[in-house]
């Protein structure tokens, strides 16, 4: 089977989520990549070095500059004429593009797969991860998105793929990029961090969140996450949200502070290796999944912990 993987890149570098998608794709057979964007020859070279990659298709055109699904999907459909499966990482861009490809190919997408069981059978989470479905596709071609935390990252060095330019399918002229407010990260990225410190509604406001959570995260070299309640209340931006509808994370250590442990939050972090919870309510549901729990007032406990580390 020949599989095409959509390469997500930023600032000239291949994003980690792509490497997990490559691993999933390699379980199906031969792996080809698509690098689409503006001024992406460097990305294509980097992509060709990913271990196990056969061919790298490069489409360099301003129409692909901001990964607009309206422009990228037809390009992928064109390439799917000689591929059997399409794989994208289950990131916000991947989730935006892949279903558009699937519908154009008239196939049902497999969203957020956790494992490849055979050439047509996969597992995926449903009901906020409270159930795992094993599904078999009857479609002639496969389209799927891959959960990054479920697959090891392919090595970014060692491969020797052949880079091949493909013709642009052009700008469909129905959508355009206007602007982006992308936060500059001073800490590790959530989805690839080894340690995450997350805060919930209990953190009161953005000043309190920063003054309480950030120093602990910095002591641990950790990324910072949050519950939906904390994001909705404006303590931190939307891209901090962990959960069913936010980011899915599985770090070595996840520290949940002042988070109750609603199923939608657990859906995003319960595959973490070690979960530590700090909550003043000893009956908070988060303690049912925590490996280490500390019952106490976070405003006393967290500064003390930061101090003693």
């Amino acid at each position: 089977m020949k599989t095409l993987v959509w390469v997500e890149h930023e600032g000239g570098a291949v994003k980690d989520a792509t490497l997990s998608a490559v691993t999933a794709a390699s379980k199906l057979g031969e792996v080809h990549l698509l690098v689409a964007g503006e001024g992406v020859s460097g990305v294509a070279e980097a992509a060709a070095k990913i271990a196990g990659v056969g061919k790298v298709h490069v489409a360099d055109d301003s129409a692909f500059g901001h990964a607009l699904a309206e422009n990228v999907a037809p390009l992928i459909v064109e390439l799917m004429g000689h591929h059997d499966a399409f794989v994208a990482p289950a990131t916000s861009n991947g989730k935006n593009i892949a279903p558009r490809v699937a519908a154009l190919l008239d196939v049902m997408q497999l969203s957020d797969i956790l494992s490849v069981e055979s050439a047509d059978t996969f597992t995926r989470p449903i009901y906020a991860g409270n159930a795992i479905a094993t599904v078999q596709s009857k479609d002639a071609k496969l389209v799927m998105t891959v959960r990054g935390t479920a697959f090891e990252k392919a090595a970014s060095e060692g491969g020797a793929g052949a880079v091949e330019a493909v013709a642009s399918t052009g700008d469909k002229g129905i959508s355009s990029f206007v602007s982006a407010e992308i936060a500059k990260l001073e800490r590790p990225e959530l989805t690839s961090a080894k340690i995450i410190v997350s805060g919930g509604r209990a953190l009161k406001d953005s000043e309190t969140f920063e003054a309480t959570i950030f120093p602990l995260a910095d002591k641990l070299g950790a990324a910072v996450g949050a519950s939906r309640a904390a994001v909705d209340a404006g303590y931190v931006p939307n891209d901090y949200q962990v959960g069913q509808t936010g980011k899915i994370v599985a770090p070595e250590v996840y520290v949940a502070i002042g988070i109750s442990g609603a199923i939608q939050h657990l859906a995003g972090m319960k595959d973490s290796k070690t979960i530590i919870a700090i909550n003043k309510d000893e009956d908070a549901p988060i303690f049912q999944v925590a490996d280490i729990g500390l019952v106490g007032d976070l405003f006393k406990v967290v500064p003390e912990l930061t101090e003693k580390l």
Binding site: V107, M108, L110, T121, P125, I126, G129, N130, A131, I132, A133, T134, V135, Q136, S137, K138, D139, K270, I275, I276, E282, F287, Q288, V289, A290, D291, I292, G293, L294, V295, G296, V301, E304, L305, K308, L309
Partner: peptide
């Protein structure tokens, strides 16, 4: 339908771990 659900299973269960008494024990 294009997909057949062969099986629906519970995810691996996490069991509650230990509670520590204070910050020193957590450290």
């Amino acid at each position: 339908p294009r997909l057949t659900t062969l099986k629906v299973a519970e995810p691996p269960k996490r069991s509650a771990g230990v509670k520590v008494a204070d910050v020193d024990e957590l450290v």
